[in-house]
Amino acid sequence: MSGLSRDDVAHVATLARIHLNDDELDTMAGQLDQIVEWVGQISEVAAADVPPMSHPLPLTNVTRPDEVRECLSAEEALSGAPASEEDRFAVPRILDED
C-alpha cells in the first residue's frame, strides 16, 4: 500500500490549483490511495516479454498524403463571412483582456 496521506493530497491539489475542503481531502486520499495500489497490481502482472503499447491491435496510419493543392484565396474564403478585418474573420470579443 502506498500510504498517500491527506497532506499529500492537499499538496497535489494546491499544485493543481484545486480547492478541496476537509471532507473532500479525506475522500480523495482514500480514493487516490486505492488507485495507486491498483496501478501497482497491474505493474506486477505486466510481463517483461510484453512490449508497451497504446492499443491492443496493430494500427496503420490511414490518412492521405499531404499534397499541395490549389485553395481558396483570402477573399474567396471571407466572401460569405458576416464581417472580416485584415483578411481574417471578425468575431465578437469574448474576453475583456488586451
Rank of each mutant, 00 (worst) to 15 (best):
M1W: 02
M1R: 03
S2V: 10
G3S: 09
L4G: 06
S5L: 09
R6C: 11
R6F: 11
D7M: 05
D8H: 14
D8T: 04
D8C: 13
V9T: 08
V9A: 06
A10G: 06
H11N: 08
A13Q: 01
A13M: 02
A16F: 07
A16Q: 11
R17I: 04
R17K: 15
R17D: 15
R17L: 12
R17N: 14
H19V: 10
H19N: 14
L20R: 08
D22W: 10
D22M: 10
D23G: 08
E24N: 03
E24L: 02
D26R: 07
T27Y: 08
T27M: 04
T27K: 06
M28R: 11
A29P: 03
A29M: 03
A29R: 04
G30R: 03
Q31F: 02
Q31W: 01
L32K: 01
L32Q: 05
D33T: 09
D33M: 02
Q34F: 04
Q34E: 10
I35H: 08
I35Y: 13
V36N: 13
V36H: 14
E37L: 04
E37P: 00
V39H: 11
V39Y: 11
V39N: 12
G40N: 15
Q41F: 03
Q41P: 00
Q41N: 06
I42P: 00
I42R: 13
I42K: 13
S43N: 12
E44A: 11
E44Y: 03
E44P: 00
E44F: 03
V45L: 11
A46H: 10
A47S: 11
A47I: 01
A48E: 14
A48H: 07
A48T: 14
A48L: 07
A48Y: 03
D49T: 10
V50C: 01
V50E: 08
P51E: 14
P51G: 09
P51T: 07
P52N: 03
M53A: 13
M53C: 05
P56D: 02
P56W: 07
L57N: 01
L57V: 00
P58V: 04
L59H: 05
L59R: 12
L59Y: 05
T60R: 03
T60F: 01
N61S: 01
N61W: 04
N61C: 06
V62C: 06
T63K: 06
R64W: 09
R64D: 14
P65F: 02
D66N: 13
E67V: 15
R69T: 15
C71E: 15
L72P: 09
S73K: 03
S73I: 01
A74E: 12
E75G: 04
E75M: 00
E76M: 00
L78H: 05
L78P: 14
L78Q: 08
S79N: 12
P82D: 08
P82S: 01
A83K: 13
A83W: 15
S84W: 09
S84N: 13
E85N: 07
E85Q: 12
E85D: 13
E85P: 00
E85I: 05
E86Y: 07
E86G: 08
D87P: 02
D87Q: 03
R88E: 11
R88G: 02
R88L: 11
A90S: 15
A90Q: 14
V91N: 07
P92S: 09
R93Y: 09
I94M: 15
L95R: 10
L95T: 14
L95E: 14
E97Q: 10
E97V: 10
E97T: 06
D98M: 02
